[in-house]
Design a protein around this nucleic acid. Structure first.
Lengths: 320, 320
DNA sequence: CAATACCGGACAGATTCCGCCCGGATGAGG
DNA sequence: CCTCATCCGGGCGGAATCTGTCCGGTATTG
C-alpha cells in the first residue's frame, strides 16, 4: 500500500470488523509504526469517525458502538469471490432450506455493484463450466444450523426433535461437540443424554433445536470429523468384512477413506474391517486396490472373489 | 483542509450528493488543480468506489447509478449462503490472485449484518468442519479472468501472454470458446490462431489478456468441459487401450469420468479408449468396475488381467 | 505496586502530493 | 467532417505531508 489515504481507510475497515484492537496489533496489520497508528486514529477522528480509545491493561481502540456503517463497497476481486462462492456452495449442497437463497443473494449483491462489473460477472457466470459433481442438497433449516453452531461454540446443551431414517420422531437431549459438512450433508455429533453415548445426527432430519440450561465439556482430543466419518462407516450393512491387506498403513490410508472402514496395523500388514451391503462390490473394490490380501471373513466373500477371477479370465481369453 | 485523505473523501461526498460534475467544477470546490481531481477520482476507483467518467461535450464525473441504493439487506439464509460460499470457494481453490479477497469480502458482508446474526455466523464458522479436501489454489488474475469471460461471452478474440509449463513466455491469439474450472484450476479453451487448432490454457499461466478486433463463431456442439478434460486425458502415456464394456453408455458415463478416456456407444456395449501408463493398473480398474468386458488391445493387457485373476484366486483360497 | 496500553511533541529524513505543461482521445451537435 | 467542450495521464521540480524514533507522561486492572 503506497498511499497514506488507503492505509487510513484500511484502519477504518479493520475497526469496522468489530471488537477492540491494541495499537501493536494494528501496527502489525497495517505494516506501520505504532506512533503512525495513533496518528491514523486521530485522522479518523478528524474525519468525524468516532474512534474510542481505552488506556491501560486490556485497552485498545474500537469504533463507538452506535456508529452507522456506509453502504457495502466490494472490490472487483471480492465481488467475484462472493459470486463464485455462491455457485460453489450451491454445487456442494451447502445451501440451506429456503432453496433460492443463493440465487436471491446473488441478485442482491449484483444490485449494489457498479453496472460494468456486474456485466462482467454475468459474462463469467454464463461462460464458465465446473467439473466437480453437483451434490443433491439435504439442507437443514437455517435456525437449526445456527442454534446448533452457537450451542457448540458456547458448549451449551440443546434439545432437538429428530426424525430417524425409518420415520420415528422424538426428542433428544444433546451436548453438541461440533458440526461437520460431508458429501452434501450437515451432521452434528455429540453426547446424547438419552443414549449416554456419542451420537451423530443429520441436520436435515432435525426439526427443531432449542438451547437448554447448563454447560458441558468436550472430551479432550475429540475430533468431530473423525467421529462423524467413523459413524458413517458403522452403518448396519448386511455383511461384516475383515480382510488383511498386504501393504503399509500409510499406503492403505491414502487409498481407503475413513468412511469406508477401520484400518488397523498388524504384523503382516493392515487389517480392514467394515460392513458392506454387497460382497461382490467388496470383491471388486479389493481387486481394484491392487494389493494382495487375505480374507478373514466372511467365507462368502471368497466365493465372490473366485467368481470375479473367473470373469476376468473369461475377459482375458475372449476375442483372440 | 490539510490532508489529502480528507480531500479525497470530500470528493466522495460531493459525488454522493448526486448528478454529474466537470473536473473544473470539482477543482473549484476542492481548491485543487484539475489534474489533482483526476488523481483523486482514480484513488476512489482504487478504493472500490465506482466513479464513472464521460468524455466530450456534456461530460464529467458521476457515481455509478446503483451506488446510492440503500444498504444491502440479506436474510439470514442469504447471509449464511454468502459466507459459506466464500468458505467453499476458498477450499475449492476458486479464489483469485489477491489472496485475501474472500476474507475481506467476508468482513464487509459481516459488517452490514445485524450484530446478532453476525455473531451466530461466527459461531458457525468456528465450529464447522469440512471433509472435502482443500485445493491448493492456482488463481488467475481477476482482470485476466473477467476479460476472457467477456470475450467468450461476446465471441471476441483475445491476445494473451502465456508462460508454458517449462517457462517459455509468448503471445497467443485466441478465440476463447469457454472457461472451465476443474480440480482447483481455471482453464480457457478455444481456437489458437498460431497453432490453427483448438488449445487449452491454464489461466494462472496467463499474464495478460486483451480483447482484439473481430468476432468468431463457436463450432456447433462444442463443449468446453469435454474439450478441457479430454485435453488433460490426452497425456502421452505409454499404452493405448481399447476395451468393450458390456454395459450401457449411461452406466459407463456415471462410473467413468471423461478425464479417464473416451466412451463410445457401439452395438454390443460401450467402447472405452484411453491411454494408460501401467497396464496392471488398468486391469485393476476394469476389475473394480464390475462389468464383464472384452479387450480389443493391447494383448499385454490380457496377460495383466490373467495375472490379476490368479492373484484373486490365491487370495480366495488362502487361509481356511 | 507492577504490568500493560494509550498519549503526543519534536526532529530529520523519506515519501507522497501538487501544479503545471501538454499532446491526445472522446463525444455531442452543427 | 469540423468545432468545441471535456476527460486522460505521463513527467518534472518543488512543496507538503508522512514516518520512525525517542521519550516522558497518563490511565487501567489485578
Amino acid at each position: 500500500m503506497t498511499r497514506p489515504t488507503a492505509r487510513v481507510l484500511a484502519l477504518l475497515e479493520i475497526l469496522q470488523a468489530g471488537g477492540g484492537f491494541t495499537v501493536a496489533d494494528l501496527a502489525g496489520r497495517l505494516g506501520v509504526d505504532e506512533r503512525t497508528v495513533r496518528r491514523y486514529a486521530a485522522h479518523l477522528a478528524d474525519l468525524g469517525i468516532p474512534v474510542e480509545a481505552r488506556r491501560g491493561r486490556y485497552g485498545g481502540y474500537r469504533l463507538a458502538p452506535g456508529y452507522k456503517l456506509p453502504p457495502l463497497m466490494l472490490t472487483d476481486e471480492e465481488a467475484v469471490a462472493v459470486v463464485l462462492g455462491l455457485v460453489a456452495a450451491t454445487r456442494a449442497g451447502l445451501v440451506t432450506a429456503e432453496g433460492a437463497a443463493a440465487e436471491s443473494a446473488t441478485a442482491k449483491i449484483r444490485r449494489v455493484l457498479p453496472a460494468v462489473l456486474a456485466r462482467r460477472i454475468d459474462s463469467l457466470l454464463d461462460t464458465v463450466d465446473f467439473t466437480a459433481p453437483v451434490r443433491k442438497p439435504a439442507p437443514p433449516g437455517i435456525e437449526v444450523l445456527l442454534v446448533l453452531a452457537e450451542a457448540a461454540r458456547h458448549q451449551q446443551p440443546v434439545s432437538i426433535t429428530y426424525t430417524s431414517w425409518h420415520g420415528r420422531a422424538g426428542e433428544r437431549q444433546l451436548d453438541p461437540y461440533g458440526l461437520v459438512f460431508h458429501a452434501g450433508r450437515w451432521y452434528v455429533t455429540g453426547h446424547d443424554h438419552d443414549r449416554r453415548a456419542v451420537r451423530t445426527f443429520r441436520l436435515d432430519r432435525i426439526g427443531t433445536a432449542r438451547p437448554t440450561q447448563g454447560r458441558f465439556d468436550i472430551p479432550a482430543g475429540f475430533d468431530p470429523t473423525t467421529q462423524v466419518l467413523s459413524g458413517l462407516a458403522a452403518v448396519p450393512y448386511a455383511h461384516e468384512m475383515s480382510v488383511l491387506l498386504h501393504t503399509s498403513l500409510e499406503q492403505a490410508q491414502r487409498r481407503i477413506p475413513p468412511s469406508v472402514g477401520t484400518l488397523t496395523e498388524v504384523p503382516d500388514g493392515v487389517r480392514l474391517t467394515t460392513r458392506v451391503e454387497r460382497l461382490d462390490g467388496a470383491a471388486q473394490m479389493l481387486a481394484g486396490l491392487g494389493w494382495s490380501f487375505t480374507i478373514d471373513r466372511p467365507d462368502e466373500l471368497k466365493n465372490k472373489v473366485r467368481a470375479l477371477a473367473a470373469r476376468l479370465l473369461t475377459a482375458a481369453n475372449a476375442g483372440g
